[in-house]
Design a protein around this nucleic acid. Structure first.
Length: 135
DNA sequence: GCCAACGTTGGC
DNA sequence: GCCAACGTTGGC
């Protein structure tokens, strides 16, 4: 299974992620996004997307620990997962590029822009990888 | 900085 | 349980 996780770069950027070596993905306060977090399995790969500034997918990350109680809240409805960076994309793939791709018209990121954690199908994943390689 | 989209809350 | 009001997110 593949996913896209979003972060505002000035809050938590890819570069910071790489420096940290790994991070826990917390702060999700949306049921749909939460359900996606819960569905993640160890080894699942994720695109790391910069919202607001950049508006592009910059790298690939990987789930190293599946969902557990969000340590930043006592509210047991919310969960976090641990992820680590895998690699930076050769070229970032911008939102505009993805919007222009017919194969990506159903991408959850585009259809439901406000969702902070969204699923990506295998086909979509492949296509985005190709775009990052300039194809 | 504005506004559209959408989720959540609360009054009835 | 409906729906209006409100808050938040994120693209532009």
């Amino acid at each position: 299974m593949h996913w896209i996780i979003k972060s505002e770069p000035h809050k938590y950027s890819w570069d910071q992620f790489v420096v940290d070596k790994q991070t826990f993905w917390d702060g999700v306060r949306n049921y749909q996004a939460r359900n996606n977090l819960k569905a993640m399995k160890k080894g699942d790969e994720l695109f790391f997307y910069h919202s607001n500034e950049g508006m592009e997918i910059v790298g690939i990350a990987k789930v190293i620990k599946t969902s557990y109680q969000d340590p930043t809240t006592d509210d047991e409805r919310w969960v976090a997962v641990d992820v680590k960076p895998v690699k930076k994309l050769k070229q970032p793939v911008t939102l505009a590029q993805m919007k222009a791709e017919k194969a990506l018209k159903d991408l959850a990121l585009i259809r439901q822009g406000r969702l902070s954690v969204s699923p990506v199908t295998d086909d979509e994943w492949e296509r985005i990888i190709e775009l990052s390689e300039g194809k």
